[in-house]
Design a protein around this nucleic acid. Structure first.
Lengths: 184, 184
DNA sequence: CATAATTTTCAGAAATTACTGAAAGTTTAG
DNA sequence: CTAAACTTTCAGTAATTTCTGAAAATTATG
């Protein structure tokens, strides 16, 4: 399957960006291909289109499934496994945020929780302790906030994001009404 | 300089997580070390403490400066360059978000902008075009939102994040008051 | 159950990324 | 200007990651 020029540019770009997004070139390319392709594709089609080995495609698809970004789709009368992207672009973005949090924040948060309670032995350790605690609190806040945002419907989330500078006014408004009860 | 056990755990963990955060092991370790160390450190101290080569430290410090996460500090009576972390943990988190956006989103946004305007030649290209456009819109929205959040004071940002599920109510409130003017 | 179709695994090869340490470059002091 | 103190660069090496392709495992068909 030969891709149109524009599609190629898109796919190669995803390949190049892949490593910055947490996966490798091939995985990036496979994802890009599935994103722009209207119909489900099987592993051989992907391998042939991207000129990569069958084994590599298998590993890439596994990786993308672990990210919950693609899903299997069976095609009637065909024994092969076909794949499509999981949900809308918006869904995928949410998933990426969640998965990245799992991989980039959760391990650190666990470690800090486990190591946080013991007290410091001297002044230097006291300082270290404090900064580690700050990191812990920040990561915890971020995590909780991410959870909350994830419970919002796409519409609400979108309208929140589109508030722009309105968010500041809204916060002021809330403070007035609530009488700054939650201030610390 | 020998680190206390707890500090070691922290530093090594940052080293291991480094690659997930967009830099390498050494850079992660140097950052962690500077975060928990109360005083500024010079390159030799860092190299010795982490048991890595002087050249590697030089490259790592350069990288961390390009991330705007550390800054030079001169120590009176000493010709060596000393380094400390740039700002509070909170400041650093903001910086990381900004820098990651630059590295992970901006290049894609540029490409999509440049490639978005031409029209599709057939049905398949039309589909690809639409999905690419969705990605473009999403990235643009994310970027703008990030910009807005960055203009908020740390206090306001924190109070926004601490709203939790209150954010949903606040949005409803706003819709009522504004008469859903901005709805699309 | 046998066999054909398909997917997965994984050892070795290739490609990429990170690190060392010595040489080159820069800055400061006298 | 010269020398000493310090930093950066970078060629070569080491470590890590990715990729291939053939063999093993799995799944479906008759």
């Amino acid at each position: 399957m030969e891709l149109p020029e524009k599609a190629k540019v898109f796919v190669f770009h995803f390949g190049e960006m892949g490593s910055r997004w947490g996966f490798n070139r091939t995985v990036g390319q496979i994802l890009a291909l599935l994103v722009i392709h209207p119909k489900a594709l099987n592993a051989d089609q992907i391998a042939q289109t991207l000129s990569i080995s069958r084994g590599n495609v298998s590993m890439g698809l596994k990786e993308l499934q672990s990210w919950r970004l693609i899903q299997l789709q069976h095609v009637a009368g065909d024994r092969k496994d076909y794949f499509i992207t999981a949900g809308t672009i918006w869904d995928m973005a949410k998933t990426v945020f969640e998965e990245r949090r799992k991989r980039e924040i959760d391990p650190t948060l666990s470690l800090l929780r486990a190591n946080l309670l013991e007290d410091a032995q001297n002044e230097d350790e006291e300082y270290a302790q404090q900064r580690i605690e700050e990191i812990h609190d920040l990561l915890e806040l971020l995590t909780q906030w991410g959870d909350h945002l994830n419970t919002l419907s796409p519409e609400k989330l979108e309208s929140l994001m589109k508030l722009g500078s309105g968010i500041s006014k809204l916060l002021d408004m809330k403070d007035k009404i609530m009488g700054k009860k939650n201030q610390d």
